[in-house]
Nucleic acid binder design. Structure first.
Lengths: 354, 354
DNA sequence: GTGAAAGCGCTAACAG
DNA sequence: CTGTTAGCGCTTTCAC
């Protein structure tokens, strides 16, 4: 459908108030207010410089009647910096990333910045492509929340990241280390160690670990930490099975473990609540009971960990705060990470062994 | 820490490969390749026009050695349109919105567009401010997924939206109707009616409804639908209590209902799974049993609805697909919404009454 | 205080 | 095919 013929109008007519068309420009506002571009710019977009009250009012009135909003892209090219923070997550529908994103968004909002979200789907090639595309936005910073492995497939991403940093970009990564990047450190190892120790204290002596592939840092740290704490308390790890961070793969891994044999009184540690919950499903599917028969604990304390039955024992991670800190790390020159307190929370999924 | 003094260099020297500084521009690439700006632009950024292989290669080589990425803001101002889709959600950590966001992101990725996310926190004033700010991005479109009420506080948002549309912007809203906006319709009423009918078939005769404030459209539709189906099947609604879409407020509302008295054999309908799960928590806190004593059902079928115990009966909503459709509605001129099939899924939280 | 004018990085006619 | 040259909408010296 093309635009219907409009009533003929003298070409010099100002665009009528209710016409549909391109957004009014600063030029339009200046014209309407009878001032120069420079003056209009000064009053509308934060400038240090003073403008006489009379002018200021006229400009503001003009902007209001025209419905003017500054064109962010134009401002960005003129100023040489854009008001965007780019966030890279593996999967925005996963509560872990959703919580982080909410913290980032909160910070961005405080500073009037906008956050753009990109999804890696845990695909390294995709991740590299995305980082490259994101570079084009010339964002103030890049927040990497996608769980990354140390190796293969990462080279390309690392290269793009390095380039971004070299060009003056800021990147902050969760856990992962990247040359020149800041890190928001969630002490996965310590948290998991505390959890493992606690499980040992509760009387468990045998554990099954459900993790992601070797080399995935978050997974490795949590696994190692749990093992250390648990062994320190006198327990032993009977099996380690692996999937990824998704519920289904965790359930499959747990099923394998069950097939191999899991005695009553064992505690299962899932590297994340989502994984632990997947394991719970597998345990039930195998007609075993979660709790008294096989205990389960996770990590993160996502909202649904309280809603499963029995409620899941886990390590509380202030994910939203962590997201906020990641944001601060981008915008605050002398940011140093405040402690992100992890806390073991014991619920019914790990009843004290007799 | 300031930049350490760099080794003196003749001012005419090209920026060395590893210097830290502003990102290379198209101009730099053209220079390096010994071609004109126009040619460089043509090979690097999709143009219809042909460029001789020899030139093309030189430009590509130059871009690669310089690590060039086109400046998106500059492209946007030059082209007069920016590659962004703005998404407005109430709370990105809520699985409902997370799922929608993932669908939007999938679509955007397919088209090489970027999505920016803003959070309303269900605050109308905030929402209006955000829409206004988003206008500045001159996005291709605006997707409104924040649940909105019909009235008060919305006037301002409506005004901003109207202005955006008048200026040629596209907006698509979930459910809500806005002059000139496309809608992605999730047939909440029909889905809820089917659920209500099904509950009646299972033998329930009395229901407690847990909704959000009156005037919140999604809530109203689901409530009305459930009531219709349930009454049609011979049931009756005993109480309607209200909170919002959050777990805690739903639990509080349910607690109030329990205080007022909820007989065994009642079915509780929560307008969303999150609400239903909050109600489940309240029921347990009141030392009642979910299932045989008080049945519970929800709406959406978010992942955790399968993980609670007993598993939650609900209406499956293809949220991610809905998000994808919202995206399509923005970019596809002659988009018409394909059916978004809702499906009642009965699980253990609503055992067949005897 | 205010305005003219030169960019910002890129695109898109328009000539060659 | 390639290069020249106006813009795009806004900011920011730099004079007045």
């Amino acid at each position: 459908m093309t635009t219907p013929a409009a009533p003929a109008e003298p070409p010099t007519a100002r665009r009528p108030r209710h016409a549909r068309g391109p957004a009014p420009t600063l030029h339009d506002v200046a014209l309407e207010a009878g001032v120069s571009l420079a003056t209009a710019s000064r009053v509308l977009n934060g400038s240090e410089r003073k403008v006489a009250a009379a002018f200021r009012e006229r400009v503001e009135a003009a902007a209001a009647t025209l419905g003017y909003t500054a064109n962010v892209s134009a401002q960005a090219t003129a100023r040489g910096r854009s008001p965007v923070i780019a966030l890279l997550v593996a999967d925005i529908a996963d509560p872990y990333f959703g919580l982080i994103a909410s913290g980032v968004a909160r910070g961005a909002d405080e500073q009037g910045l906008v956050v753009t979200v990109a999804i890696t789907e845990r695909d390294p090639a995709r991740e590299a492509r995305i980082v490259r595309a994101l570079r084009g936005q010339r964002p103030q910073g890049l927040i990497l929340a996608a769980s990354r492995t140390q190796e293969e497939g990462q080279a390309e991403t690392a290269r793009e990241l390095a380039e971004f940093i070299r060009l003056g970009g800021r990147v902050v990564a969760f856990g992962a280390e990247a040359e020149g990047a800041r890190r928001v450190e969630i002490d996965n190892r310590a948290g998991a160690t505390a959890l493992g120790r606690r499980m040992a204290q509760l009387g468990y002596r045998s554990a099954v670990l459900v993790g992601a592939a070797e080399g995935v840092r978050t997974s490795d740290d949590r696994l190692a930490g749990f093992r250390a704490g648990f062994e320190e308390g006198g327990g032993a790890v009977a099996q380690t099975v692996r999937g990824d961070f998704r519920r289904e793969s965790a359930a499959a891994a747990m099923t394998a473990a069950l097939d191999a044999g899991v005695p009553t009184g064992t505690v299962v540690f899932g590297i994340s609540d989502v994984v632990a919950i997947g394991a719970m499903a597998a345990i039930r599917a195998a007609r075993r009971e979660v709790g008294a028969d096989i205990a389960v604990c996770g990590f993160d304390d996502v909202p649904s960990s309280r809603d499963v039955t029995p409620a899941l024992t886990t390590v509380r991670v202030p994910l939203s705060d962590a997201g906020y800190e990641a944001f601060r790390a981008i915008v605050d020159d002398d940011w140093t990470q405040p402690p992100l307190a992890l806390e073991v929370v014991v619920r019914d999924s790990t009843p004290g062994a007799a």
